[in-house]
């Protein structure tokens, strides 16, 4: 569809609201068929970016091409080929589940007989066939989310934009959604999603950017990012909390020898625990106890995108 193959291409993209800069010069390329993520905490500028890509929010400056077109000139043509799942559901709660699909398809100029057929298929796909004639209002959060996804597919879009697809849902509803999104991806639909859950990013994204305060801090596949910005394993140490005493940071000097030996590469201090980045967690724990430190509890785990984010920004993703 475009010479260089990128479905979405941004260079130095900026969004300001008055004097406040929400998106501060980001570069993005999304290739056809991939699942691309924006991972970042609240306020990072993810939704602002998605709305610019969705051709509903004019960029303040920078270059943006979506499906090879310019959103400020060809908004309707771009939107005709996108599916959008916004951060908060905006279904029409006065009409039924099925009517939400039928009515929405009309905005894309699709004929009613085709829409009836498509609504049937989509409701099946999102497992809502038995609710077709019900009103939207009493549906659970997960069901509404699935209906919003079905609605986003009514025009058979080339790209689906999902802004925090599972925020606020219970674990089971999240897994149902992830599984549906995975199927979409297998069908070759390009997915662009935002999330502040690292497990979601790891589950769904082929490639992602870590976003913070309007900027992109790093880009790559989840595995690449973990390799680049974290060690293979993390040893988490908790110590007794003593009233009036400093937090876990007071144990950091005691860890110096362990770091010098090379058993631990880096130490991060959280309010309630220390994170020791190491190629081998069990070996690191032996080194720690060998040096005379006795944590209250310890845990060895694999590094995750959470650790990548901590490394890049000095903060945790969900606070």
């Amino acid at each position: 569809m475009q010479q260089d193959g990128a479905l979405i291409r941004a260079r130095g993209l900026v969004k300001r609201f008055g004097g406040f800069t929400a998106v501060d010069g980001i570069d993005v390329d999304v290739a056809p068929g991939e699942a691309f993520g924006f991972l970042g905490p609240n306020g990072a500028g993810k939704s602002s970016t998605m709305r610019m890509i969705g051709a509903v929010s004019p960029p303040t400056s920078g270059e943006l091409r979506v499906l090879g077109l310019d959103p400020s000139a060809d908004g309707p043509a771009i939107r005709a080929r996108l599916g959008v799942v916004p951060q908060t559901d905006n279904l029409d709660v006065e009409i039924t589940v099925e009517e939400n699909l039928l009515v929405y398809g009309r905005y894309f100029g699709l004929p009613r007989p085709l829409l009836r057929e498509r609504a049937r298929e989509l409701l099946e796909f999102v497992q809502l066939s038995d609710r077709a004639g019900d009103r939207v209002e009493p549906l659970s959060g997960g069901m509404k989310r699935r209906l919003t996804i079905a609605r986003a597919l009514v025009n058979e879009p080339d790209v689906v934009l999902l802004d925090e697809p599972t925020t606020g849902l219970d674990p089971q509803a999240r897994h149902v959604l992830w599984e549906r999104l995975y199927r979409l991806k297998q069908r070759g639909v390009t997915l662009v999603l935002t999330t502040h859950y690292m497990d979601e990013a790891e589950q769904l994204c082929d490639r992602l950017v870590v976003m913070d305060k309007g900027r992109i801090a790093a880009e790559g596949s989840p595995a690449e990012l973990i390799r680049r910005y974290a060690t293979r394993e993390v040893l988490e140490l908790r110590f007794p909390v003593l009233e009036g005493q400093p937090g876990p940071e007071r144990y950091v000097p005691d860890l110096d020898p362990v770091v010098r030996q090379g058993a631990v590469e880096r130490v991060e201090v959280l309010p309630d625990r220390l994170l020791l980045y190491t190629p081998d967690g069990d070996a690191a724990l032996s080194a720690v106890t060998g040096s005379g430190l006795h944590p209250l509890s310890s845990l060895v785990r694999r590094s995750s995108l959470e650790d990548v984010f901590l490394r890049l920004t000095g903060r945790t993703l969900v606070d």
């Binding site: 939107r79 005709a80 908060t88 279904l91 929405y104 905005y107 100029g109 025009n155």
Partner: peptide
């Protein structure tokens, strides 16, 4: 409240 206009503006309609 329902933000249904936002949903419409995500389509080719303006």
């Amino acid at each position: 409240w329902q933000k249904t206009y936002e949903a419409v503006l995500a389509t080719p309609a303006g």
